[in-house]
Amino acid sequence: MSEELICITCPLGCHLTIERRPDNTLGVSGNRCARGVRYACEELLSPKRMVTATVRICRPFQAEAAACGETGLGSVARLPVRTSQAYPKEGVAGLLADIYRLEVTVPVKRGTVLLADYKGSGIDIIAARSLQV
């Protein structure tokens, strides 16, 4: 049985055909360079994705500040976050659920680790922007 993938390493977008051989190796065709083989192997054997999301901001005196229009955050209610590296695809849904449970108090600095070594993966969840009160 063969599987088909589009290589996304570069804009050429080669259409790859991959055969799973009896000895558990992969036979890749349709690629125009070696990176196609690498992409196909990673995508079929251990697919990973960069995950970006947002978390709730807990602002001190939020209501008072908003009432007098004095908060420097304006309409900003979420802090963008990302994984430090690509995370195994099958675990993304669980990871997102855990990210959505987080709450961050401002001020926060870009790069702050919000969840360290998530489930022993070696991958951190980090703040993707700084926010001042």
Partner: peptide
Amino acid sequence: EELTGPEFAE
């Protein structure tokens, strides 16, 4: 390096 939009802006 590969960044998100907010990181690039900052």
